[in-house]
């Protein structure tokens, strides 16, 4: 009989999360790297007593697995909050009617360019698209250097079909228009720009002096420098008439019909707070706070000191879907 009780107990233990709903908990799907997001979520648990139930993404799906799971669960939502590692995914969820608006009090002070005007997503702690360059005197300082003959066969960038590189290309299409952007892409091809599998690989290729420079995420560059590698980080196009550099904030989204909406809002408030931004700036991801005046380490620039590309992320998301076929063809050169 004891064995039977044990077996029934085990069964209840296993299925209990599926039938519980009244606990102090919040379900969050996360595309940000686990190694950086997990400590923040643990702090939230400690500070509020609300249990976090996370689903993390993997690099293998180019960090889109969690978003796609949210789409699959549209009619049976399991998550309360989605922590995206860039705003494009948050915008896709808005377009598909999976998120609902929430304007958090913590979002005050975050520049309007980095948040949805209706509150469907709010950006925080950003990465910048920066150059990592091998320790050379004559370093590139503009994305136009990708098509400069001086750097022929010496530049590398991550596969534009995935991740932040896609967003960067799409933003160029938005800012420059299709014709100029396509011309730029073709010239990159002619100039022998090498395509790597990821920003991480691009960083390694530059660290190993196999290539002179690459556009990568700022966290990749900062980590390489912190690891003592002989490389430099350069924010491109920072002169007065320059294009500026693309900023890609994390974005947080409240999911429509999630089981713990109230706690979901509390988590969003927590993630958008200056304190969370400070923690993410000092962590290895070295992310740039979007609130002004937040402490940062010496190697992380403050947002007010960066000339950024003035781009509408909704338009970038739309353009990104439009240029998929072009990018597929382009990457096979």
């Amino acid at each position: 009989m004891k064995r039977l009780y044990f077996f029934i107990g085990l069964c209840l233990l296993i299925i209990s999360p599926g039938i519980s709903s009244a606990k102090e908990e919040v379900v969050v799907y996360i595309s940000e790297d686990r190694v950086f997001s997990e400590p923040i979520l643990r702090d939230f648990e400690k500070d509020t007593g609300i249990k976090i139930k996370p689903v993390y993404d993997t690099e293998e799906t180019k960090s889109t697995g969690a978003m796609n799971r949210l789409i699959a669960e549209k009619n049976n939502p399991q998550a309360d909050v989605y922590w995206a590692n860039e705003p494009i995914r948050a915008i896709v969820l808005k377009q598909r009617g999976i998120s609902i608006a929430y304007i958090s009090p913590s979002s005050e002070g975050i520049p309007t360019i980095f948040k949805d005007s209706q509150g469907y997503w709010t950006g925080f702690s950003a990465r910048a698209r920066v150059f990592i360059v091998s320790d050379e005197k004559n370093a590139p300082d503009s994305i136009m250097d990708y098509i400069d003959k001086q750097w022929k066969n010496r530049a590398v960038m991550a596969n534009p079909l995935f991740g932040t590189t896609t967003s960067w290309i799409a933003s160029l299409f938005v800012v420059w228009g299709d014709e100029k952007a396509r011309d730029f892409m073709e010239k990159m091809k002619t100039n022998g720009v090498k395509i790597s599998t990821s920003n991480g690989e691009s960083t390694t290729l530059v660290v190993n002096k196999e290539f002179a420079f690459s556009l990568v995420d700022s966290d990749d560059a900062v980590n390489a420098i912190r690891a003592g590698k002989q490389v430099k980080q350069i924010y491109p196009d920072q002169d007065k008439n320059g294009l500026g550099c693309l900023i890609l904030p994390n974005a947080v989204v409240l999911i429509k019909g999630g089981p713990n909406q109230k706690n979901g809002r509390k988590l969003i408030d927590y993630l958008l707070s200056p304190e969370t931004e400070r923690k993410l700036a000092f962590a290895d991801c070295a992310q740039i706070p979007l609130h002004k005046g937040v402490d940062t380490p010496a190697d992380v620039k403050k947002i007010e000191d960066i000339k950024t590309i003035n781009v509408n992320y909704e338009m970038v998301a739309k353009k990104l879907q439009e240029i998929q076929q072009f990018l597929k063809k382009w990457t096979k050169y």
């Binding site: 599926g18 969050v28 790297d33 686990r34 139930k53 689903v55 993997t58 690099e59 399991q78 991480g200």
Partner: peptide, 24 residues
């Protein structure tokens, strides 16, 4: 497990796989 695990139900194999990006 990687495809179906519900929130807060990750196993060690999944944890390693999801930690691989950028972890020491």
């Amino acid at each position: 497990t990687m495809i179906v695990y519900p929130p807060a139900h990750d196993t060690l194999a999944v944890r390693i796989f999801t930690l691989m990006a950028n972890s020491p």
